[in-house]
């Protein structure tokens, strides 16, 4: 049996004013898998994520971290937030300090580390995000892509077990999105659990091991990207769109092309083509 790092059972959440943002969500996130939560705007992705580290408390239902139900008292939450770090969608709201160094030191300072330890963590986090040279820059003179990286370093400096990123690719240009995907790959290789939300089916298809699809506060589908996106009725019901690469592969398949393994990105696709041409 596989191990679940985060789990939700029948979670319902209302915002003040009675807006139902989550309407009975049950999901289990397997340890070590790259997870994407897909869904259009307003489907409840951000609300879901805020349940992962106990910022929001479900109206009914349960949330589990490492098989243990989350408790909402201070000591438990401190520990939970140390282990489950959230990178918020808008870096302008997350970044509050005047300089990058101060900003990134905030998390580890709260965890009560010694000053040299905090310093070490800040430098490591900045290095991991490739922004060491921004160390003493003021936050407000950074570009959007740089701010995004600082907001990821913010959370990395706390060395969480799970890294939750809310729409990390939003507003990023293709180059920065590519860099972000590389950074996430690197973090996964180092053993971090990465969960991200997106409405970009291409990104989810190319990157994720497992996807959850949200629609109007409910779980509309889940599975590997291949399972989810090849199921035509499901794709339609969940307001998704088939990734273009998959579309192309389907056309090729109809023409008698045989794939050993469904390619998830262009390099994999190229490889399959070469194998096919040679045989």
């Amino acid at each position: 049996m596989s191990e679940y790092i985060l789990e939700m059972r029948d979670v319902v959440f209302d915002y003040p004013g009675g807006i139902r943002a989550l309407n009975g969500i049950s999901m289990a996130i397997e340890k070590g898998k790259k997870i994407a939560v897909l869904g259009p705007n307003g489907s409840g992705k951000s609300t879901l994520f805020l349940h992962f580290n106990g910022i929001l408390r479900p109206k009914s239902g349960k949330v589990f971290y490492r098989g243990q139900q989350i408790k909402y008292h201070r000591d438990y939450l401190v520990n939970l937030r140390k282990n489950v770090g959230i990178v918020f969608q808008d870096p302008d709201i997350q970044l509050f300090a005047g300089s990058v160094f101060q900003e990134v030191s905030f998390g580890p300072m709260n965890l009560g580390f010694s000053i040299p330890e905090v310093e070490k963590r800040v430098v490591e986090a900045l290095k991991a995000c490739g922004i060491e040279e921004l160390k003493h820059r003021p936050t407000h003179f950074l570009s959007f892509g740089q701010k995004k990286r600082v907001s990821i370093a913010d959370v990395l400096a706390m060395d969480p077990e799970v890294l939750v990123l809310d729409e990390p690719a939003a507003y990023l240009d293709p180059k920065h999105e590519q860099k972000l995907v590389e950074l996430l790959e690197e973090l996964c290789r180092k053993g971090k659990q990465v969960i991200l939300s997106t409405h970009d089916v291409e990104l989810a298809y190319a990157w994720a091991d497992y996807v959850f699809v949200l629609k109007a506060g409910r779980l509309a589908a889940e599975g590997t990207p291949q399972e989810v996106f090849q199921n035509e009725t499901l794709v339609k019901e969940a307001d998704l769109r088939k990734p273009q690469l998959l579309e192309i592969c389907d056309i090729l398949k109809q023409k008698g092309f045989v794939f050993n393994k469904m390619p998830r990105n262009i390099p994999e696709f190229r490889e399959e083509l070469l194998i096919y041409v040679e045989s």
Binding site: I86, F88, Q94, F96, F101, Q102, F106, N110, E119
Partner: peptide, 23 residues
């Protein structure tokens, strides 16, 4: 924004005092 900021600070272990390391 101030509400969201509070949420974001809370997510990083804010407990009423902004502690940062300075240059």
């Amino acid at each position: 924004d101030s509400e969201s900021l509070y949420t974001a600070l809370e997510a990083r272990g804010y407990e009423g005092e902004v502690k940062v390391l300075t240059k």
